[in-house]
Design a protein around this nucleic acid. Structure first.
Length: 270
DNA sequence: CTAATCACCTGAAGGC
DNA sequence: TGCCTTCAGGTGATTA
């Protein structure tokens, strides 16, 4: 489910709630959800800060960290008091804080994970630079594209080059940049790579401003849906006319995923 | 290195 | 109504 904008929305909200709270107890209701990779206990530690890298939510504690990945249907829901009504029918893990508030990890499909680690960098060493990282430049992006022969859809979906985009924002970005998803990454021109870089930033920023996209399961930390899905140009728009040229938007399978694009105005680099 | 296919899970939607 | 198939925001392992 959630990609960078959705994860960013959750992190921003949790920053207002969690820092300073002490973890009293952790309840694990589905054993695979909570992966403990360090010897110290998370219980008794205080939340120090929150950050994000790609689609990973990082909850920094005093001496270790919790790394949360929502995968397809995960939700991190903040519950102020035990009496607060909350829609969570698949709670897999709950963090109970000493002031009575809780952070619920709700996840219908059980794909999501919470890793308890000492070194965040070591755990995320295979994750590439965050798409919104200020240090990330169009030149870096062009060099990355040059180094691979994968199709651009697979390239952008892979988290090892640029982290944060998933199926929705890859399709939306490629459409706005006018690049066909089957284009070979190393064949994309410098000009088009720069255009794609700028488009990615714009698409993600817009989605963050709209609190992310809700297709079915995504909810923010307050249980609210996003609004960015109202502005899709190609994702789930198959059969409808392209907003630029009127050609019917197609849906094909590429890199194992449903891929939406305009066959007329997205150029194929081969 | 790259591409494709599973596997992990559940629930919703569509076909018959 | 009910059964069966297909599909879904992701990623990691395995197989060609």
């Amino acid at each position: 489910m959630p990609e960078l904008p959705e994860v960013e929305t959750v992190v921003r909200e949790l920053k207002a709630y969690l820092p300073g709270k002490k973890i009293k107890r952790i309840s694990v209701y589905w054993h695979k959800t909570f992966v403990n990779e360090c010897t110290q206990k998370a219980e008794g530690q205080t939340v120090h800060s929150l950050s994000r890298r790609g689609k990973y939510i990082i909850i920094n504690l005093d001496r270790s960290a919790l790394i949360v990945h929502l995968r397809m249907t995960g939700q991190l829901l903040f519950q102020q008091t035990a009496e607060t009504t909350i829609n969570a029918f698949h709670v897999r893990t709950a963090l109970h804080f000493d002031d009575g508030s809780r952070l619920l990890f709700n996840d219908a499909r059980k794909f999501g994970r919470i890793y308890h680690v000492v070194s965040v960098n070591k755990r995320l060493q295979k994750v590439g630079i965050d798409a919104m990282d200020a240090q990330f430049s169009a030149t870096d992006f062009y060099r990355m594209l040059q180094s691979r022969k994968m199709n651009s859809k697979a390239f952008l979906l892979s988290q090892q080059f640029v982290a944060g985009m998933g199926n929705i924002y890859v399709d939306e970005s490629l459409f706005r940049a006018g690049i066909h998803p089957a284009s070979v990454s190393s064949k994309i021109s410098r000009t088009d790579a720069e255009k794609l870089f700028k488009v990615i930033r714009r698409v993600l920023t817009f989605a963050i401003q709209n609190m992310g996209s809700t297709i079915s399961d995504y909810r923010d930390a307050n249980g609210k849906v996003g609004n960015a899905q109202k502005f899709f140009y190609v994702y789930q728009q198959q059969g409808k006319p392209c907003v630029k040229c009127g050609t019917i938007i197609k849906k094909i399978k590429l890199a194992g995923r449903g891929t939406h694009f305009c066959p007329e105005c997205q150029r194929l680099f081969i």
